[in-house]
């Protein structure tokens, strides 16, 4: 913009580079959660670029709406679908990968060529004056939104309401059976297999209320039921403190 403004250059190359890295990470990650995090990275960097382009309002909206709301929404859905679910990277459709890369590469080259050819000699006007007209970028955008683009604004609000309703309708689960009452639930618990009561909370004779500390049974052995499965699977169980075993023994009337 201004000759010799190397600050913007640095911002551009760093943020732009990180954005591209994030995009590549999204395409190439095996796990879905990693892809989501890479996308979030890209979007934050894009927000930085918006600010660098004299669009502070948009930058903030990008962070709040996109990175904050949309990506969180993605992560919630990933939770529902299954965090473990990972794509096998073997392509089942013949030639899809190759043709896709070729076409996308071609598209990139064409766009770059078109842009390069069209914009070589353009001097950007810059938004300093425009932003100053109404006393700031936000005010300028507000002026446009509520005058020139008012109809689009109102229609977009209707769209948002419709989207919310649509999501509610789509995610709704129909209740086919009558809701089980408290009595029926406890009956089922006692008649069915398995332990009828709650899982023991962290410790009968527990000395800690951490989730990863196993409760001790009266004979001093750890209770398998008191640690949630994932922790056991991950091997995150805290080892038993011998001190406490002795204490329990004394409470129980000495070692057996």
């Amino acid at each position: 913009m201004i000759e010799g403004n190397w600050g913007e250059e640095i911002v551009f190359w760093v943020s732009g580079g990180l954005a591209v890295l994030g995009a590549l990470g999204m395409i190439l990650s095996k796990k879905a959660v990693h892809s989501a995090l890479c996308v979030a990275l890209t979007m934050i960097n894009l927000a930085i670029l918006y600010v660098a382009n004299s669009a502070p309002f948009l930058g903030m909206v990008q962070v709040i709406v996109y990175t904050g709301a949309v990506m969180m929404l993605f992560l919630f859905v990933l939770m529902v679908v299954g965090v473990d679910s990972s794509d096998s990277l073997i392509e089942t459709l013949k030639g899809q990968r190759l043709v896709a890369i070729v076409l996308a590469l071609g598209l990139a080259i064409l766009l770059v060529a078109g842009v390069g050819a069209g914009l070589t000699d353009v001097v950007p006007v810059g938004l300093d004056e425009t932003n100053g007209v109404d006393g700031g970028n936000v005010q300028g955008i507000a002026r446009l939104l509520f005058t020139d683009y008012l109809v689009a604004f109102e229609v977009t609000s209707a769209l948002l309401i419709t989207a919310a309703l649509g999501a509610m309708v789509l995610a709704h689960r129909e209740r086919w059976l009558p809701r089980a009452s408290q009595q029926e639930l406890s009956k089922a618990r006692f008649l069915g297999p398995g332990h009828p009561g709650n899982l023991p909370s962290s410790g009968t004779y527990a000395r800690h209320n951490a989730v990863d500390t196993p409760a001790l049974l009266p004979d001093g052995s750890p209770s398998d039921l008191s640690i949630p499965g994932p922790l056991v699977a991950r091997g995150d169980v805290r080892p038993i403190d011998h001190h406490e075993v002795e204490q329990i023994e004394s409470l129980g009337g000495g070692p057996k």
Partner: peptide
């Protein structure tokens, strides 16, 4: 400022690849 547009083109193509490959 054409740099930004070129960056946009690159990101767009990467997104296109992502749609088709994953």
């Amino acid at each position: 400022p054409a740099n930004y547009v070129i960056l946009s083109a690159i990101l767009f193509s990467l997104g296109a690849i992502g749609v088709l490959v994953r």
